Simulated assay, not measured.
Amino acid sequence: MPLARLDISHLRNLTAVRFDPSPHVNIIVGENGSGKTSILEAIHLLSFGRSFRSHKHKTYIQYEQPECVVFAQLEQDQQPRIPVGIKRSRDGAIEVRIQGRAAQSVVELAERLPVQLINPDAFRLLEGSPKIRRQFVDWGVFHFDDRFINAWRDWQKALKQRNSLLRRGKISANLLAAFDQELIRLGEYVNTARKAYVAALTPHFESVLQQLAAGLSVQLNFFQGWDAQKTLSEAIEHSYQRDIDVGYTNTGPQRADLRVKTPSGDALDTLSRGQQKLVVSALKIAQGQLLIERGRQLVFLVDDLPAELDANHRRRLCQLLESLNSQIFITSVGPDSMDFTWSDQTDVRHFSMNQGELSQASKGLQES
């Protein structure tokens, strides 16, 4: 569901911002520190319940303010708009409201407002820990498989319980085996769902990458977290003594990874910085394609589009984004770097950001 209205209060230098975005393309131009990235941060907070710039909520709540609030109205076809909001307090409390009622968790927001972020930090998808790539896969599975989130949560609980027992030191094999049954059942479901998702994602990724960078050969390989020749039950049984010795579970879906490789080796080691950004962008756009294919809508946040990409690749990226018919928010330091000509059928709105104040360009300036 696209955002039809966005209100932001007391988030970084955004004291009170009212935003009526286009359902298609929104280009926000401003100097560094003007607050343009904070607009994207607010949308991300509304979807994920957390910032993509900091894990510490106090860093984005405006100084000397008790809380920040992000409110939005979501557009739906031929139906009344859906009001949603999130309030993050300085003491750490989170309040989520949907259509006037208190939501049980931010998961309800994530279901209604899927958001994809493409920004300079997206390189972490390649250079970061396997946890970051698992989160990327799990975001996709969450929107791909309705039962995944509950199975994933229950598996996490079972894993924590097992690790707690292992840390106690002396524990019988029979007692541990009783916990392992549920851990294995849930872990196998999580693994099967992840593998199915990566299999569905791969052809989309390969197609998008060829449109962005023809001739660039990159493969996705999913490592499930244990020897593919063994069942999860066999792998855990084989790792029993080692788990006892170190005090935690060594094998299972918590060790899964999405490995991105070229014919010469890991993508991180063999591709240029610009090529890496194209690969990451292809992964994000492919996720969007797969979601749209299943009848969902999503919002793309593209922060600092010109960074690392030349004019040719910027145009290709914008062309792909436009073809998805999704709502897009793009930030840029200067209008001269936005050299892509959008279709006449695309509603493109230009905004200027200056010291936390957002203003929309006049129609004549937008078309010039």
Rank of each mutant, 00 (worst) to 15 (best):
F48R: 14
V69Q: 02
L74R: 00
Y63Q: 13
V69L: 13
G49C: 10
S38R: 00
R90W: 11
I43F: 02
A42K: 03
A42G: 00
S47K: 06
A72T: 01
I43P: 01
C68Y: 00
V69F: 10
F52A: 05
S89I: 01
H55M: 02
Q65W: 13
S54Y: 02
F48G: 04
Q79V: 09
C68G: 06
I86L: 13
K56F: 10
H57F: 03
S89V: 04
G85T: 01
I39E: 00
V84R: 00
H55W: 05
G92N: 14
Q73A: 07
R50L: 03
A42S: 06
Q73M: 12
Q76C: 12
Q79C: 11
R53P: 07
E67A: 12
P66C: 10
V84W: 02
S51P: 05
S89Y: 05
A93K: 11
H57P: 00
A93V: 07
P83T: 05
L74Q: 01
D91S: 12
E41L: 01
Q79F: 14
A72W: 02
Q65K: 15
F71Q: 10
A93M: 11
T59K: 13
R50M: 05
D91A: 11
I82R: 05
F52R: 05
S47Y: 05
L74I: 04
Y63I: 10
H57G: 03
K87L: 15
R53V: 10
A72H: 03
V70H: 01
E64V: 11
S38G: 03
L46E: 02
K56Q: 12
K56V: 13
D77I: 11
P83D: 05
R50I: 04
A72I: 03
G49V: 07
Q76M: 11
I61Y: 02
T59R: 15
I82P: 03
L46Y: 04
K58A: 12
Q79Y: 12
F52G: 04
C68D: 00
Y60P: 02
I86W: 04
F52M: 11
Q79S: 09
F52L: 08
D77A: 15
Q62L: 14
K87G: 13
E67S: 08
L40P: 02
Q78H: 14
G49R: 09
Q65P: 07
K58L: 06
S51H: 08
